[in-house]
Nucleic acid binder design. Sequence first.
DNA 1: CCCTGAGGTTAATTGCATTAACTTGAAGTT
DNA 2: AACTTCAAGTTAATGCAATTAACCTCAGGG
Lengths: 184, 184
Amino acid sequence: MPRAGLTPARVVEAAADVADEAGLERLTLAAVAKRCGVSLPGLYKHVDGLDAVKRGIAMLAVEEMTVRLAAAVAGVTGREALAELSGAYRAYAAAHPGRYAASVRAPAPGDAEHDAVSDRAIAVIAAAFKGYRLEGGDLVHAIRMWRIACHGFASLERDAAFGRPESLDETFARLIDALDASFV
Amino acid sequence: MPRAGLTPARVVEAAADVADEAGLERLTLAAVAKRCGVSLPGLYKHVDGLDAVKRGIAMLAVEEMTVRLAAAVAGVTGREALAELSGAYRAYAAAHPGRYAASVRAPAPGDAEHDAVSDRAIAVIAAAFKGYRLEGGDLVHAIRMWRIACHGFASLERDAAFGRPESLDETFARLIDALDASFV
DNA sequence: CCCTGAGGTTAATTGCATTAACTTGAAGTT
DNA sequence: AACTTCAAGTTAATGCAATTAACCTCAGGG
């Protein structure tokens, strides 16, 4: 029995790949084990079960998104920052549907580690909104509205078939415009 | 063995209730069977399996929502119609999370029955937008933007914990305002 | 009154998650 | 170099859910 050299992080990455390919709801530890070259119960030496793996994917996804969002808004402000931020969000969700789906759920109450990665993401997003000079509640509402719009878009782009021929990019652009206009 | 008097519709309704209570992802035919007072395989005399039941819930939910949306926009137009429509959407999703989750997924390609209930819902929504006098692509984009916003809100209201003390109602109202402003 | 089929039943199979009990080899100790 | 130990695996066992098959039975139409 040669050692497979697994670590919790490796298992979670393999699981995230499975989730991206098969969909989060069809993520199965059996498939993860196969991809890791290990028997199914062998995974339990590294992770605590399916729910723990999903939490791991969520944290991984939020961290990956944070990096991309930060890169996207570097050097821009205001409306341009909003557009770049939104584009990066949409692109990540489209490229990694399983990871993205896992990332949506809020951290469990009292999960400090998960909270921490969430907070880092929020900090990046809040920074991207600086150009609008929003304060207090206005900033909170603005960030919520942005997340709602981006999540709604990403989610429906994936699940709902927009049958009409009109361009989805155009819809996305108009949505961002509407937000931008409401933030000034 | 007294007959339980089941019908496909009854089974789907029971399943929808289970989904609302336990969450769509935890919907189980075993629970549905128990609620129907029947053995699990007994369900198969009325429905074709779990996927078929989920499709049934989706259609039921879209039909129920259509009725509520239509009632909400009766007698109003423009911004007021938008607000009523959105409020009814949000209320339904909050009251029936399992049904709502099932309703989001687009009909399978070629599923004429499912398409039909979808189309009726879209007709009601489109009618609610009449006051904005949008035409062609503008109307399509507007309806998409509205759905994206409402779905994003409903979905995050359910899954993501908005930790901040700011009112969610206020966020919702601002979102609707932003849309309304962009539609005029 | 019969007899047939819809609406049930139990039994069997399969797939996955999880736990338990066992094995082994690699790393560190003496 | 041999010894010990424990982390990283293994196989075996259990339980639940979905699905299929094979069987039973009552209720209603001829």
